[in-house]
């Protein structure tokens, strides 16, 4: 029981998470014939529930279950006006960026590279560059 608790509580190593995600994505592709995408499910919400919508709901329910099992569930309070504005601005920029790049980290990177699609590598290189630039901007303007 103590071993199981540790397993649910402690963060898993990155390599284990990566291997599991890869295997689950292969299973998903063979089951429904489509690789994992996130923004796709948000995009066509008005036209009804698709496989991707169910996957997105699964992500939310799954992370809730994981948090409860680790007994780390907490409702986070809004700290100040600045947090609200930066969070909303970040969300809008991410959504717009995902539409421009025709996918997010999952659809345009994680699922694209195993499908031998060139745009996945392209997305990856620029996501890394963008993340580096983002950190520089945070240090300069946000901290």
């Amino acid at each position: 029981m103590k071993g199981l608790r540790k397993y649910l509580k402690k963060p898993w190593p990155y390599w284990l998470g990566g291997v599991l995600l890869g295997l689950i994505n292969v299973a998903l592709l063979s089951l429904i014939g489509m690789p994992w995408k996130v923004t796709q499910g948000l995009l066509f919400l008005e036209s009804g529930i698709s496989n991707y919508t169910i996957l997105n709901i699964g992500i939310i329910v799954g992370s809730l279950v994981a948090t409860l099992l680790a007994s780390e569930f907490k409702i986070k309070k809004i700290k100040d006006r600045k947090q609200v504005i930066t969070a909303l601005a970040g969300g809008i920029m991410m959504g717009y960026g995902a539409k421009l790049a025709s996918g997010c980290n999952i659809g345009a990177f994680f699922s694209a590279i195993p499908s031998f699609s060139l745009h996945g590598w392209f997305f990856g290189i620029f996501a890394f560059l963008g993340a580096g630039l983002g950190v520089k901007l945070i240090v300069r303007f946000v901290l």
């Binding site: 986070k76 309070k77 809004i78 700290k79 947090q83 950190v135 945070i138 240090v139 946000v142 901290l143």
Partner: peptide
């Protein structure tokens, strides 16, 4: 509190 990675480390 409420800050996500990498803000706390920075």
């Amino acid at each position: 509190l409420t800050e996500l990675c990498p803000i706390p480390l920075l």
